[in-house]
Simulated scan of single mutants.
Amino acid sequence: MTAVVLAAVVGALFALGTFLLLRRDLIRVVWGLAIISQAANVYLLAMGGITEGTAETVPVLEGHGHDIHVPVGIADPLVQALVLTAIVIGFGMTAFALVLSYRVYEEHDTLDVSELGDRE
């Protein structure tokens, strides 16, 4: 059941991001890129494994370096670390793109992408 909900959420986020990406307003294009980025993060988290329970119930590392294995009930922490990094970078890039959009508006008095392409 959880996989179906996550697949629907990822699909809806990608659809919404694509819809916004195809708009004429530059701000909506930026938000479309941000939503697609977050949809990719949700997808990576879903593929990393979602488990119930806590990590304290099962030891992650057993032995002293020669017999190490990860139990089946534990989600992969590497995926979570990579997604956390992607969220921070995505936030910074979205803020930068919004500042650039403001600068475009100051220079051209419009945020319409089709009008910006027609100017020389």
Rank of each mutant, 00 (worst) to 15 (best):
L84N: 04
V4M: 08
L78I: 11
E107Y: 06
I50D: 04
F14K: 02
L100H: 05
F96H: 01
V70F: 12
E107C: 03
P59G: 01
L16N: 08
A40D: 09
L84T: 14
T57I: 15
F19D: 04
A55G: 12
I50N: 07
L21I: 05
E107R: 15
Q38D: 11
I50R: 09
A3Y: 09
S37A: 14
L16Q: 08
F91S: 14
V60H: 08
L13Y: 10
V30I: 14
M47P: 03
L82P: 08
G11S: 02
T57Y: 12
V4K: 10
V72S: 04
L100G: 01
D118C: 01
I74S: 01
V10K: 00
V5G: 02
T54H: 13
I89M: 12
I36S: 11
G65V: 05
P77E: 04
T94N: 02
A39C: 05
V113D: 05
E120W: 14
E115T: 05
G92V: 06
V30Q: 02
G63M: 06
T51I: 09
R119M: 07
A40E: 11
L111K: 02
D109Y: 06
L44P: 04
A86N: 12
R23K: 07
G63V: 04
D67M: 11
V104L: 04
V29P: 00
V30R: 10
L84F: 10
F14N: 05
I74R: 03
L21H: 07
E62A: 08
L16A: 13
G65H: 01
M1R: 05
E62Q: 09
L6E: 15
T110D: 01
T51H: 14
V30N: 09
V70R: 10
F96G: 03
V113P: 04
N41P: 07
L21T: 07
L44R: 06
A15G: 00
R103E: 00
E115V: 10
V30L: 05
G53P: 09
L111E: 00
V60I: 11
V30C: 03
D76R: 00
L98C: 01
A15S: 07
H66V: 12
D25H: 08
A95Y: 05
A55L: 14
I68G: 02
T94K: 10
E52A: 12
E62G: 08
L61F: 10
Y43Q: 11
S114E: 15
Y102I: 03
I89G: 00
S37Y: 13
R119H: 03
V5P: 00
N41F: 08
P71M: 03
V4F: 12
F91Q: 13
Q80Y: 15
G48R: 00
V42T: 11
